[in-house]
């Protein structure tokens, strides 16, 4: 059987601590860059606000509404468009946004081009109930 030198464990310990210390220094250099990037962005905005596009809607929804239809002129299989739907869902929870069905009494129109929203509203006989400053429209059916 091979006999290991007495200080073998000591060597391993030293290797481990040295590796972690070296990695920590490299991490700190990287971390400094990450933080300074945020410092730069902070000159434009104080924090990342995921709710802004839907501001003004959450407190003005008709009482007792549990489901809203959701219409978008974008492709809901794409990550960015899904993100917008998820953000709307988060802001308006506990109301559920049904993106598969716009036959609900209230429908949320979230379009990249607002003209598409008005066109769809006309098609589905929906009138505007609420519109926020970012062009998001809550429509209501008669």
């Amino acid at each position: 059987m091979i006999k290991l030198p007495l200080n073998y464990n000591k060597i391993l310990k030293t290797l481990f601590i040295c590796a972690l210390s070296l990695f920590t220094i490299l991490n700190l250099i990287k971390l400094k860059k990450v933080v300074s990037d945020i410092v730069k962005i902070k000159q434009l905005t104080n924090y990342q606000d995921i709710e802004y596009r839907f501001k003004g809607l959450e407190n003005n929804l008709p009482k007792g509404t549990t489901y809203l239809g959701y219409f978008s002129d974008s492709d809901l299989t794409k990550s960015d468009d899904v993100k917008l739907l998820s953000q709307a869902q988060f802001v308006l929870a506990p109301v559920i946004l049904d993106y598969t069905n716009i036959d609900h009494k209230y429908v949320l129109f979230v379009c990249n081009n607002e003209t598409n929203a008005w066109k769809k509203m006309k098609e589905t006989n929906t009138s505007p109930f609420l519109r926020n400053r970012y062009g998001v429209i809550l429509g209501v059916k008669p």
């Binding site: 990450v34 924090y47 990342q48 506990p94």
Partner: peptide, 24 residues
């Protein structure tokens, strides 16, 4: 803490899953 303050909603899965459920 500095970074956490800049991202108060957390990551995508935090607000779209865990915090969404908490809101419900």
């Amino acid at each position: 803490c500095y970074q956490a303050n800049f991202y108060p909603y957390g990551g995508w899965d935090a607000w779209s899953c865990w915090n969404l459920k908490a809101k419900f």
